[in-house]
Design a protein around this nucleic acid. Structure first.
Length: 742
DNA sequence: TTGCCTACTTAGAATGGCGATA
DNA sequence: TATCGCCATTCTAAGTAGGCAA
């Protein structure tokens, strides 16, 4: 998108954990808001009437506009992300990518004849509608044959099994001979998720073990013996004593309130002030325990490992439709203190112990039902094959339901994942039309349509989340696109030489700050001014819009389209473009991998995936720099030696000295390569300081793009995906050719 | 239309195991 | 062999989105 590029650089300058600073300007919106909401519902009723037949007209208009997206494309042709040579040089000689991230596909992207072919194949093989169709066969015969041949060559599982077998008894784990290729099989229809499901149920949290009598709790300087119930909750606090949480007022208040509920009458009378409670002995005891665990002998550690493995084999798998599938989280969450993110009003509350009577088990009628522990009963045993969960319970903090589900490598998760990317690929085919439509809607007579169009523009352009409504006071005050408030944006008719700049500053999911200054189109800017007119800072920016209205509209534009799909689409398309731009054929493998990581990073920046810089970051950078310096020293030594041996060879002109020159030449080359690897590593690490790559890699990037890239450039897929990721993306690794296009 | 409930995906932090290195 | 630091794995919070009833 032309002038629409995002200055992501500024967003990542100390924007993570700016929550505290941010807090000051937040949290006021309240009673006033409720009045506004009543007002809003009045408006929306009239809006609704006037728009009923307009909706129809809009739809017609949309149909006519179909395929007329060129105008938009021309005007908003992407401004390419600067290639590597246009970047800021870093001290180590490598450069960071420019801050701009998102761009539109180039026109030739759609025109390439080679691509036409591949798009056709996509339609044949991968159309999302197939996920709804009854009988599906994904691979054609040719492909199957090709794959079978490849399998002959690779067979990774067999090697693994061989190794396991030679290890003897130690390895209990049995890998199936061949990995099941669920993606070559037919899918269920009509919402049926499975026909047969059998599992062992959850692993419950271990019962509380009272502290040894030598570990004392003190109140107001005096020792006090706590009842087991009160003691258990006290230990939760003691275990977190070193954490910042325990210094926060809300956390302390909530904890103390809930703790008191567990106390007996005498404790309640005595323990009235948290400040007077001394948990230090408890805390020291747990630290010592953890230390002792670390210092266990090899044998003891092995025993523990074996026990874990036994538990995993017993409870960590289920049988779903003739296949043994791994369960993601087979342990019930243990009791503890609730750790909400950001300024969560409920942080510190007691997360109570989940007992069998709280647990609903889901399995086939005809399966062997999981047994509750002796003397207990499950809350319910259900046989619902329209859902994917095995176990569920309701937690006591928010009253929400928690589930035990299958691992991402399972068929049930994989199919869904695949389908997600197919929907995003379908969006690619009609995104121009949709963009034309929402640009048209910026001029609508109806406020709700203009708001919808501007919000959609932000979701598309900035990859903002939808922004569902949240219950006030129940969670941290975070927003997404539809729930933005006036106070979250600032408008600058002119800023730093750019026109129509919008500054976003709000807390998004997980209370991660989103800060961005973006030039927008004039109409968007004018509309925003209009939306803000006569509003208080804590009023909704889009007062005629919510996610449900938006998604209903999107559904009309494309089957299966929701706000979330734009994030997936924009993330994946960005990766594909960035890979094309950043990868150069001459580079060696580490440099290519760096390019991949940079492409991945561009997506992470787009999606605002931030992390707290690792605590050991500075130190680890320093260590790496030391290594680089040492290596540089080695290199100049080696070069000097090479020079002198060359001079020597010139004089002597014998075989021996010639050989020495060769050996030293090789040594220089080797060291140069090692140095280069270290420098690449340093650049990568530096650029990753505050950016989390994993989230986008795991959830937003169509894995077939990465697999195709690996195949095209002969990069081992292991360089991009670790073992778990390869398991999750087995379908993509198996099916994507090097010419795959998202 | 709204609120509520449910099911599922997406998210960063915490934990723990293991390999590199001294 | 011990220590350290990295990265894979686990944990669980926090989102999205859709269905249903009033």
């Amino acid at each position: 998108m032309s002038g629409d590029q995002i200055d992501c650089g500024s967003r990542f300058n100390d924007s993570h954990k700016h929550k505290d600073k941010y807090k000051e300007k937040e949290h006021k919106h309240k009673d006033h808001k409720k009045d506004k909401e009543r007002e809003k519902s009045k408006h929306s009723n009239s809006d609704h009437k006037e728009s009923a037949d307009k909706k129809h007209r809009d739809k017609e208009k949309m149909k006519q506009k179909d395929g007329s997206a060129d105008k938009y494309k021309d005007k908003h042709k992407e401004k390419k992300m600067k290639p590597l040579d246009g970047k800021v040089k870093k001290e180590n000689g490598f450069a960071s990518p420019p801050p701009q991230v998102k761009s539109e596909p180039e026109d030739h992207f759609y025109q390439s004849p080679k691509l036409e072919k591949s798009l056709k194949r996509e339609r044949d093989d991968d159309n999302d509608s197939e996920f709804k169709a009854k009988r599906v066969k994904i691979e054609n015969d040719k492909k199957v044959k090709k794959r079978k041949l490849e399998e002959e060559d690779i067979k990774p599982n067999k090697t693994k099994n061989k190794r396991a077998a030679t290890d003897g008894k130690k390895k209990v784990k049995k890998e199936p001979e061949e990995k099941w290729k669920w993606w070559e099989e037919e899918r269920y229809t009509d919402g049926v998720k499975w026909k047969f499901l059998e599992h062992k149920g959850p692993v419950l949290a271990p019962p509380y073990e009272p502290l040894p009598s030598r570990v004392k709790f003190h109140y107001d300087g005096k020792h006090m013996k706590l009842s087991p119930e009160a003691e258990e909750v006290a230990t939760f606090f003691a275990k977190m004593l070193d954490h910042e949480y325990t210094t926060k007022d809300i956390f302390r208040k909530n904890f103390f309130k809930d703790w008191r509920k567990e106390m007996n009458a005498e404790e309640k009378t005595k323990l009235t002030d948290l400040k007077k409670c001394d948990f230090n002995e408890m805390s020291d005891y747990f630290k010592a325990q953890s230390e002792a665990r670390k210092n266990k002998s090899k044998d003891e550690k092995l025993k523990l490992k074996e026990e874990n493995e036994r538990l995993l084999q017993l409870y960590g798998f289920c049988i779903m439709d003739n296949h043994r599938e791994r369960i993601a989280n087979f342990r019930i969450e243990p009791p503890g203190l609730f750790r909400g993110r950001g300024d969560h009003p409920k942080m510190g509350m007691l997360k109570r112990r989940i007992r069998p009577k709280d647990i609903i088990v889901n399995c086939s009628k005809d399966s062997k039902h999981p047994e509750p522990p002796p003397g207990t009963k499950w809350k319910e045993v259900r046989h619902d094959n329209k859902v994917t969960w095995l176990v569920s319970w309701t937690e006591n903090i928010q009253g929400s339901i928690k589930y035990i589900m299958l691992n991402p490598s399972s068929r049930i998760k994989g199919e869904k994942d695949w389908q997600k990317y197919e929907t995003a690929r379908r969006l690619k085919k009609c995104v121009d039309r949709i963009r034309t439509q929402y640009r048209e809607d910026w001029k609508s007579k109806e406020m709700r349509i203009r708001q919808r169009a501007v919000a959609l523009y932000f979701i598309d352009k900035l990859a903002l989340r939808a922004g569902n409504e949240k219950e006030e006071g129940e969670t941290a005050d975070t927003v997404g696109c539809c729930s933005l408030r006036v106070e979250h944006t600032k408008l600058y008719p002119e800023n730093d030489g750019q026109e129509f700049v919008v500054e976003f500053d709000f807390l998004g999911k997980d209370s991660i700050r989103y800060y961005n200054k973006v030039p927008v189109e004039k109409r968007v800017f004018k509309n925003l001014q209009l939306f803000m007119e006569n509003k208080e800072p804590d009023d909704d920016l889009f007062d005629r819009l919510n996610t449900s209205v938006l998604n209903k509209h999107l559904q009309e534009l494309m089957d299966g389209l929701t706000a979330k799909v734009f994030r997936t689409y924009n993330a994946s398309i960005t990766l594909q473009q960035q890979l094309k731009q950043l990868t150069s054929a001459e580079e060696n493998v580490p440099a290519k991998v760096l390019s991949y990581n940079r492409a991945n990073r561009a997506v992470a920046i787009l999606c605002n995936h931030q992390r707290a810089p690792p605590k050991t970051f500075e130190k680890s950078m320093q260590n790496l720099q030391t290594k680089i310096d040492v290596k540089r020293g080695q290199l100049s030594d080696a070069k000097r030696e090479l020079k002198s041996s060359k001079a020597d060879a010139k004089v002597r002109r014998d075989e021996k000295s010639k050989k020495t020159v060769e050996t030293r030449k090789k040594a220089v080359e080797r060291i140069e390569e090692q140095l280069m690897k270290l420098e690449v590593q340093a650049t990568d690490r530096q650029e990753n300081k505050q950016i989390a790559l994993g989230t986008s890699k795991l959830n937003y990037l169509d894995p077939r793009i990465s697999v195709a890239w690996c195949k095209k450039w002969s990069i081992p897929v292991e360089k991009i995906y670790n073992k778990t990721q390869r398991e999750k993306f087995a379908w993509a690794i198996d099916m994507a050719d090097e010419d795959f296009e998202f």
